[in-house]
C-alpha cells in the first residue's frame, strides 16, 4: 500500500513536472494557479469527508497571501521557502485558535461561521487604506534559495515548486485519510453519536481536519500571491471561497488527485469560455458545473473509484 502510494506519487510528480517543458507559458501559469487553488480545495475535501463544508476557506487563502506580501514588502524576505513556511505558520496558529470553536458546529452553522470569519478579514482589509484597501498591493517575484530567475525560468521554477508541494501534500493527506483519525472522519459523517460511544472524540477529529485545511489554505494563498504578483481583499471574499467549494464538489471526496484535476479543468473551462463567450462566460461556467453535478453526483473521483469497485 505504502509502496503503491510512493510509486503513484513519483509518477504524478514526473508527469506534472514534465509540464514545465511541454506546456506553453500561458498554460503553465494557469496550471500553477489551478494547483495552488487545488491545495486550498484539498483542505475543504478533508472537512467534507467529515460531513462539513467550509464556505470560508478564503480566510486562510487570503491570510497566507497577505502574510507573504507584507513580510516580503516590509522585511525584504523574498525566498519562497521562507515565505511559505511563515504564512503556513500564521495560518496554523489562526487555525488552531478557531478550530476548537468551529469543531462543535455542523452543517449550515459550520458553513456560515467559517464564512463569517473570512468576511471579517475581508471587511478589515478593505478598510485598511495604508495597505492598499480594496485595491490591494503588489508583491515582487520570489527567489529560490538565493536564485532569482526571470521570464520563463521563473514560471518554470514556480510551477515545479507548486507541483512538488502538491505531490507532498497529496501524499500526506492520503496517508492521513487512510489513518485511524482519517477513517474516524468518515465514520463521523455517517454517525457521530456512535463514534463518540466508541470512545473517540469527534471534536478532536474535526479540529484536526480544520487545522489541516487552514495550513493548506495558507500555502495555496502564498503561492497564488507570488505567482500573481498582487493580493487584494477579494482573496477572502465569499465568491472566492465559493469557488473552492465548487472545485471540492466537482472533485468529490473519494480521491486526492481528482481535486487537482478538477481545479485544472475549472480553470481551463473558465479561461476558454471567457475568451469565446465574453458576454455569457458565467452562464457557460454555470452550465458546465451543473452538468458535472448531474452526471457525476459524487464528483470526478467517482470515475476512478467506481472502476476500482471500492469507495474511498
Amino acid at each position: 500500500m505504502r509502496f503503491n502510494l510512493l510509486l503513484a506519487a513519483v509518477i504524478a510528480f514526473v508527469v506534472l513536472a514534465a509540464g514545465s517543458v511541454i506546456l506553453p507559458d500561458w498554460a503553465m501559469f494557469l496550471f500553477a494557479m489551478a494547483l495552488a487553488k487545488g491545495l486550498v480545495c484539498l483542505g475543504i475535501v478533508g472537512m467534507m469527508r467529515g460531513g462539513v463544508v467550509s464556505f470560508g476557506q478564503g480566510l486562510y487563502y487570503c491570510l497566507g497571501a497577505y502574510t507573504a506580501t507584507l513580510v516580503a514588502n516590509n522585511l525584504g524576505v523574498s525566498d519562497i521557502f521562507l515565505l511559505t513556511l511563515l504564512s503556513s505558520a500564521v495560518c496554523l496558529l489562526v487555525g488552531m485558535a478557531f478550530g476548537p470553536l468551529l469543531s462543535s458546529y455542523r452543517g449550515i452553522f459550520f458553513a456560515m461561521l467559517s464564512l463569517a470569519l473570512s468576511m471579517v478579514l475581508y471587511g478589515s482589509l478593505s478598510k485598511m487604506s495604508f495597505i492598499g484597501g480594496t485595491d490591494g498591493l503588489n508583491i515582487a517575484a520570489p527567489t529560490f534559495l538565493g536564485w532569482a530567475p526571470e521570464g520563463r525560468p521563473l514560471q518554470m521554477a514556480l510551477y515545479i515548486y507548486v507541483v512538488a508541494i502538491v505531490v507532498i501534500a497529496g501524499v500526506l493527506m492520503r496517508i492521513y485519510f487512510d489513518s485511524e483519525r482519517g477513517l474516524l472522519t468518515l465514520a463521523t459523517r455517517d454517525n457521530e453519536l456512535r463514534v463518540e460511544y466508541l470512545g473517540a472524540s469527534v471534536r478532536n477529529v474535526m479540529t484536526y481536519n480544520y487545522v489541516f485545511g487552514a495550513v493548506l489554505g495558507g500555502i495555496g494563498g502564498t503561492i497564488a500571491a507570488l505567482a500573481l504578483g498582487h493580493v487584494d481583499p477579494e482573496f477572502a471574499f465569499w465568491t472566492t471561497s465559493g469557488e473552492f467549494v465548487f472545485v471540492a464538489i466537482l472533485a468529490g471526496s473519494l480521491s486526492v488527485p481528482s481535486v487537482f484535476v478538477a481545479a485544472i479543468i475549472l480553470e481551463l473551462v473558465r479561461s476558454f469560455s471567457n475568451l469565446y463567450f465574453p458576454n455569457t462566460w458565467q452562464l457557460a461556467l454555470g452550465i458546465f458545473l451543473l452538468a458535472v453535478i448531474v452526471v457525476l453526483p459524487k464528483g470526478l473521483g467517482s470515475l476512478v473509484s467506481r472502476r476500482k469497485g471500492s469507495p474511498a
Binding site: 504524478a12 480521491s255 488527485p257 473509484s305
Partner: peptide, 23 residues
C-alpha cells in the same frame, strides 16, 4: 492505481493544451 490513471488523464490534457496552437 488511480494516481497514474489520473496522471495519464493529466498528460493527455497537457498535450492537447500544448498542441492548440496560438493564433
Amino acid at each position: 492505481m488511480m494516481k497514474s490513471r489520473i496522471g495519464g488523464l493529466l498528460a493527455a490534457t497537457t498535450l492537447a493544451v500544448g498542441m492548440a496552437g496560438p493564433a
